[in-house]
Nucleic acid binder design. Structure first.
Lengths: 220, 220
DNA sequence: AATTGTGAAGCATTTCACAGCT
DNA sequence: AGCTGTGAAATGCTTCACAATT
């Protein structure tokens, strides 16, 4: 893991600032304060200042942040000053949707290769990227310098796919399968489990019982 | 928000325990210890015990947890002892993939209605659920008793869609759009922004500069 | 005068360590 | 003897309050 002092949560906020800054630049806004960023993002101004201060002093006291300077700095921090290549494994419903979404919208993280084991899918294209067979994964990922792996295969295959991606040199994984992936400590894994999201949402709904009924929960 | 003293993170772990417990029940395992649950989920045994203890004492000291009892309790806590109805708004790539994924796999959270504004899509079906026009959203969501809204529309429409869902009685929202949604305090909002996930992953990659040394003062 | 940057305080969550049951 | 349940300690993150800077 890169820098243990910087909260993961802060890293996740950087792309939000980046998007907003680029929106502001499109409106010819050159200076913005943490209070204004707060207004638009919902994060507190102190938190925004602290997040940015982790990486250096980017603002001007009494003035604010230069939108262009700041957006460039954030891009650099995230490593988005160059296109980052990703490989997507599993061209099912979710994988295909993700590839289409990602390829059509953003260019800073680019899905450079797509893999699947189904020969009916192999050879077909998604947004101009051809689906390749699993056999080609390791050599292609190596050759293309892919740094991010996106796992959208069924749970039983997830670990094997992750192993192959890591062997091929991937440094971060985005795992959409419900399987727990175990990889070397220096590979970062981010899980997104849609079932968990949906099921945990139910808790915040009136049908959930929380801890209300018959239980004996005695606290001081 | 339901119960402020239970960490959100703990709620998110409950579906993980639930899935594992049901898997174990399928293998005729009747008793499981927090150590075994830890082994399979990657969460620490203490954390698992604490998570469960928030809702009462479900285990037997010296023995462990009864898989059937515990899974039933978790279902009840999450409100999954009855099918929870959800409505999905926006039948684009992501929305369609999500509907297909969710409708084919799980029955505890069921997508009971799908809405879109595009008349080419309206009337078509996804996994047996017909796509309805936006005009029908409020009455249908009310009539079906939908508690969860899934927002997969483009950012500019997200707030308006959220307002309609809330007006129709939805209590929790899953927002896939990059827009910040503002709703009444008692509606729970969970955001999943795929662009943020991808961009923040880049940070954990060797191309990112993190907070490295020489950068901080010199370059313009 | 305005707004950043930051140590310190305040919360929240996780881990520790062990008492309490079975 | 073994494993849960839980206060207390440790850690991590956010908010506060104000000094520093333009």
């Amino acid at each position: 893991m890169r820098n243990p002092r910087i909260p993961e949560a802060a890293i996740k906020r950087l792309p939000v600032y980046l998007r907003l800054l680029e929106e502001l630049m499109g409106e010819r806004v050159t200076i913005v304060s943490s209070a204004e960023l707060s207004e638009k993002t919902g994060f507190s101004p102190e938190q925004i200042r602290k997040d940015l201060a982790y990486f250096g002093a980017f603002g001007t006291r009494g003035v604010g942040y230069d939108t262009e300077v700041l957006s460039r700095r954030i891009r650099k921090i995230l490593g988005l000053h160059r296109t980052v290549h990703a490989a997507l494994v599993g061209a099912g419903n979710l994988g295909t949707a993700l590839a289409r979404y990602s390829l059509s919208k953003y260019k800073d993280v680019r899905i450079a290769a797509i893999f699947d084991s189904d020969w009916d899918k192999i050879g077909k294209q998604i947004q101009g990227v051809e689906i390749s067979p699993m056999e080609d994964l390791i050599p292609m990922v190596r050759r293309l310098g892919v740094k991010i792996g996106i796992v959208t295969v069924p749970a039983p295959e997830a670990q094997k796919v992750a192993n192959q991606l890591v062997e091929a040199g991937v440094e971060a994984l985005l795992n959409f399968s419900p399987a727990k992936i175990r990889v070397s400590q220096d590979v970062y894994v981010q899980n997104i489990d849609l079932t968990i999201e949906l099921q945990s949402l139910a808790y915040y709904t009136s049908v959930a019982s929380g801890e209300d009924d018959a239980e004996t929960k005695s606290r001081l």
